[in-house]
């Protein structure tokens, strides 16, 4: 059986962590991923950049509508995810606009963030 485990937290709370605490948490995440992969329990996963970097996309009447910021429609629920490998945001928008439910709901596009042992991007 395959499951998706989605990670949520309050960005404002996380920003209050010191760089040291933040790096320590990132190291824990790297270790967690390593051990899950060793047990063949994890197929993949990514940390994400903060919501300030998000772009939300909808397709209505054949037109692609793009807004700055994260998905904010409380009436809609998470239905799936795609992990894209493209060269930049323009290509990501182009690809995401082809995702069929974009016509009904919203697609939030967020760059992934590579976990590092130190100096993780923190703001």
């Amino acid at each position: 059986m395959k499951y998706v485990a989605l990670v949520y937290y309050d960005e404002a709370t996380m920003q209050k962590l010191s760089q040291q605490q933040w790096d320590a948490l990132n190291q824990e995440c790297i270790a967690c991923g390593d051990s899950l992969r060793e047990r063949n329990s994890m197929l993949g996963g990514q940390a994400l950049q903060p919501t300030t970097i998000a772009t939300t996309l909808r397709v209505r009447s054949g037109q692609v509508e793009i807004t700055d910021g994260p998905f904010a429609e409380t009436k809609e629920q998470l239905a799936g995810f795609y992990l894209l490998d493209v060269k930049d945001l323009n290509e990501a928008i182009h690809v995401a606009s082809k995702i069929p439910p974009a016509r009904y709901g919203s697609i939030e596009i967020r760059p992934v963030r590579e976990l590092q042992t130190t100096d993780n991007q923190h703001r």
């Binding site: 950049q49 945001l89 323009n90």
Partner: peptide
Amino acid sequence: VRGKQKIRDANIPFQLPSKEE
């Protein structure tokens, strides 16, 4: 600053739009 951050971190390319766009 926010604008520059978005351009850098979301990887908005410094590029001319395609003909369709």
